[in-house]
């Protein structure tokens, strides 16, 4: 069973990404974090296949979490997808520069989420 780690301070957005990926394949296990404080422990315990990380969070932001993930030896090649609530060109550039595998803007519609879920599944989980 594929494991997906979701780091996002919004419970609603975590729920939506889970719903979106599950609509493609319900046989995916999700671990949710609302911040990056326990990222090391969680990754070493869960060994997720991919991580989806929100950029703008209070305290430790998504890029810091990305750096922490990449510092774990087993996670240097693990797909990490950055998501943001609004389109920021500098965030997209930063995501690429710091080694993220993708950058998505959180869709404003349910249909958009389902489409995003299918894309993520097809590219990284199937």
């Amino acid at each position: 069973m594929d494991k997906v780690l979701i780091v996002d301070d919004s419970a609603f957005d975590r729920k939506m990404i889970i719903k979106a990926i599950t609509s493609k394949d319900s046989n995916v296990d999700f671990t949710e974090l609302s911040n990056g404080l326990s990222i090391f422990d969680t990754i070493t315990k869960v060994h997720p296949k991919i991580a989806i990380v929100d950029i703008r969070m209070p305290g430790m932001d998504g890029f810091e979490i990305l750096d922490k993930i990449r510092s774990i030896p087993e996670c240097t090649d693990m797909p990490v997808l950055m998501v943001s609530g609004s389109e920021q060109p500098q965030d997209r550039e930063m995501a690429t520069a710091r080694g993220a595998n993708g950058y998505f803007v959180k869709p404003p519609t349910a249909a958009g989420y389902f489409s995003l879920g299918r894309t993520i599944y097809d590219r990284y989980l199937s």
């Binding site: 609603f12 957005d13 939506m16 703008r56 609530g85 609004s86 404003p108 519609t109 349910a110």
Partner: peptide, 16 residues
């Protein structure tokens, strides 16, 4: 704009 869009997204998607 980021902070305003989060609840807006929630309202729109929930209704959908």
């Amino acid at each position: 704009s980021h902070d305003l869009q989060a609840p807006l997204r929630k309202i729109g998607i929930t209704a959908e």
